[in-house]
Each structure stands twice: as structure tokens, then as C-alpha cells.
Computed example of a mutant assay.
Amino acid sequence: MHAFGAEFAVPPGYLNTPSIGVPSAAVADAVAEVVEKWRRGETRPNDFDAIVDRSRAGFARLAGVPADRVTIGASASQLVGNVAAGLADGARVLVAEGDFTSVTFPFAAHADRGVTVTEVPPERLADRVEGHDLVAVSLVQSIDGSVADLTGLRAAAEASGAAVLLDVTQAAGWLPLETAWADWVLAAGYKWLLSPRGAAWMAVHPRAHGRTRPAAANWFAGGDDRWNSIYGLPLRLAGDARGFDLSPVWLAHVGAAVALDYLGSLDLAEVRAHNVGLAKALLGALGLPARDSAIVSLAADPARMAAAGVVSGVRDGRVRVGFHLYNTADDVERVLSAFE
């Protein structure tokens, strides 16, 4: 199918983007081409440096920050781990109750240093910031698609001096981001960013640089001359956010570079309107309150959904569907048919 200027082979009824996005033909072709070169022994390690730089710049555009603020990794939890490792002993962290564990576990793992992690209902997050050193939350909740109140959170954090970490994995790619004010903004690429699994990024605000620790310091995080300085001490890392880089998963960044270039060329306000419009159409037809999210959580029978040709996820005992730019009104009808 042709959607938003790209070709997709996504099957009808595919509504599982919150679990794994479907690449465009251009993304899949780019990865396949490099796999063939790899098969023939035609790839060289430093061939991928420019590709990683391209994916880094692509995420920077979506996040609204300069590329030198962006570090790369393979998963969200790895990147959050750099923030957790930089916390002072006894730090107090506030999180949303029921948030994805890649946001919360990296902090909870530092309990031996006196780091405490407090859960509150997502809608109470802004009210409870006072007395905490850091607030970590998903902009869009994986479990049900609820969207955080960033206006309230930002005001509360600035008033109390708390740092803010935002995981935009379930938002980047369909929701225009206005998050450059946050201390850390991160995303994994294999969902709404339509990239292979193994590429993730985090924007590090200059004020947060000294509070971020290179927990897995490695050769790739070296300076501009990394290929000539990969042996021996002393420690020498890039002075900007690249100093927190993890060694890249090359094939993942090949696809991500193409995917992020594509998404960066779109008007994400239009993508949001398309996705949220389909979600609201579904909720309206079911007599449920409208929400401004591309993700919908339903009390439904997963077996009936599958029988109706709907590919969905199940979270917290409920069917979870997500509408992205390659979905249509026909997908809404498929979901509705499972309720007949």
C-alpha cells in the first residue's frame, strides 16, 4: 500500500505498531542491500560511521535538538542506565505507576546505593514532583496509550529543581515532540520509528551532561579519531553526547537512517491527525470517550480479534491496538467486527 509518500507491505488489520512497527519498502531494501554486501564480504566497519551519524541526525531533527546532543544505543534501558548510573547515592526518583520497566528498572537496580523509586498514578505525577531529584516517565504509556501532562510536569520540575527524563518510544514518529527542554529524551526505534530493533537514541541536555555517566564506556564513544585510538589507556571519550555512545548495531542503523529521514520529511501534525482520527473513530463507534492518542486499550477477546484478522497486542488483560500512518478506516472496521 502507498501511505504518506512511501510504500508499505503491511497486511490489512495490522494494528500492533506499539509492539513492532512495519518498515517501508525503502527501509527494508536498504537493510537487504547491506546484508548482501555483508554476504559477499564487501562491508568494512568504518563504512557504518556515516550511517550512524545520519540516524543520529535524524533523531535530533525529530527531537528538535542539535545532533551533538544525541547519543546512540541499542535499547531504551541501556540509555536510561547511563542516567541511573549518574545519580548521587540516596537520590529520589519519581515514576508513573505501571510505566514500562525499561524506564523504571534501571533506577530500581541502584537500591543498594540508597536510590529510592516512588510510583504514583500517572495523572498525579506533576503534583508529586516536589521532594524528588528526578522524574522519569514515558510520554505515551505503553500499557494503554495515555499521554503525560508535559505542561504540568515541566512547570512542577522547574519550580522544584527536579531533572526530567522522558521516554518517547511510544510517541516519536506520530506525535510532534516539544520535549527539548527535558534533561534526557530517549526512544527505541523499532516501533513508531519503523526501524529495525537494535537502534535507540537519547538527547542529553547540556545541563545534564555532567549528571550522565558512560556506564558502558567503549571504543565507539571516543573522539573524532576513534579508529586510530582504540587501544590502551587513558580514558578518552568524545566531549559531547557521543561520549555516551554504545557500540552500534550496524544493520539496525542502516534501516534507521532511512526511516528517520523519511519521518523527518513528514508533517507529523498530519500523521498525528491521521492516527488519532482513526483511534477516535474506533472509540466513537464503541461508545467510548475520545482520547488524543494513537493507542487504544480495549476490553475485548484476543481470540475474536485474531479471528477478525486483527493483529494486536495484549497488555494488562486488555487488547491493545495502535494506529499508524499505514492504517486505514478498514482497520477500524475489522476491530469493530470482533465485537459483533
Rank of each mutant, 00 (worst) to 15 (best):
H2D: 13
H2Q: 02
A3E: 00
A6P: 03
E7P: 02
G13W: 13
T17F: 13
T17H: 07
G21P: 00
V22C: 11
V22D: 08
A26E: 11
A30N: 09
G41S: 04
P45L: 11
D49N: 12
D53C: 10
A57L: 13
A63F: 04
V65M: 05
V70Q: 15
G73P: 03
A74H: 06
S77H: 10
S77A: 14
G81P: 01
N82M: 03
V95R: 01
V95H: 02
F100E: 02
S102C: 02
V103T: 13
D112R: 15
V117L: 09
V120F: 12
P122N: 07
E123Q: 12
G131H: 03
L134M: 12
L134C: 03
V135A: 15
V135C: 10
V147R: 08
V147C: 09
T151N: 10
R154M: 10
R154H: 11
A156R: 09
D167I: 06
W174Y: 11
L177M: 15
T179N: 09
D183E: 12
V185P: 13
P206W: 05
W219G: 03
A221Y: 04
G222N: 00
D224I: 10
D225N: 11
R226I: 00
I230P: 06
P234V: 12
F244A: 02
S247W: 02
G255Q: 06
G255V: 05
A257H: 01
L263W: 03
G264F: 14
L266G: 11
A269P: 00
E270N: 01
V271A: 02
V276T: 08
G277L: 08
K280V: 15
L282W: 09
G284P: 14
G287W: 12
P289V: 05
A290N: 07
S297T: 14
L298W: 00
L298V: 06
A300R: 07
A306L: 03
G309S: 12
V311D: 13
S312F: 12
V314I: 12
R320E: 12
D330Y: 08
V332L: 12
E333D: 14
R334E: 14
V335H: 09
S337G: 09
F339Q: 05
E340C: 07
